[in-house]
């Protein structure tokens, strides 16, 4: 299924940043907290572990933290509901711009299989790193950055250091 329509150009980065910043400000003013993403993934993992082996989950402080979160159920938490919104909002914007397309993002010099393997590996590092840092680019970077948290700024600088340090080795995947 293909559409003849050309995808619309992306929004000016400063304008998109202003919009994102106003959403972030709204979250702080209304909820007293910023945005996030990795926390929702953690909830899914904790609930999954709990479903398979409840005693193992209960004996682990990390899983227990997520299982005891939420209003009566771990899924009834701010981040789980926010993430549902992210999926809806992304789809709305993508649809309006003609950018919804079943595809794999990669450079011309790598196979689809190779790209998928790197995506899984990178995701795993991302998940581990985010938990070590107590949040990802949304929670620590964007939200922690706006409230000027010392640890958040330390984190954010290191994300850019890591990205630039790895760029040379990953050039065959992207360029």
């Amino acid at each position: 299924m293909t559409t003849a329509r050309e995808p619309a150009p992306y929004m000016n980065p400063y304008l998109a940043g202003l919009g994102l910043g106003l959403v972030l400000l709204t979250a702080f003013v209304v909820m007293g907290r910023g945005l996030g993403a990795s926390g929702a993934f953690s909830t899914i993992v904790a609930v999954g572990v709990d479903a398979v082996t409840p005693t193992h989950a209960a004996g682990n402080e990390f899983y227990r933290g997520y299982l005891e979160n939420g209003f009566g159920s771990p899924f009834k938490s701010f981040l789980m509901f926010e993430v549902i919104g992210v999926l809806i909002g992304g789809f709305i914007s993508g649809s309006l711009a003609g950018r919804v397309k079943k595809t794999v993002e990669k450079g011309p010099r790598i196979s689809t299989k190779g790209r998928m393997a790197f995506a899984v590996a990178g995701g795993a590092l991302m998940g581990f790193g985010a938990k070590l840092a107590g949040g990802c680019t949304s929670g620590q970077g964007l939200s922690g950055g706006a409230v000027l948290g010392l640890g958040s700024w330390t984190f954010m600088i290191m994300v850019f250091v890591g990205g630039y340090a790895g760029a040379y080795f990953m050039r065959r995947q992207w360029r």
Binding site: G122, I157, G162
Partner: peptide, 15 residues
Amino acid sequence: GGLILGFGFIIGGYC
């Protein structure tokens, strides 16, 4: 954690 996440970003392509 930030450093590991940065590696994950360039390898995986997303956050």
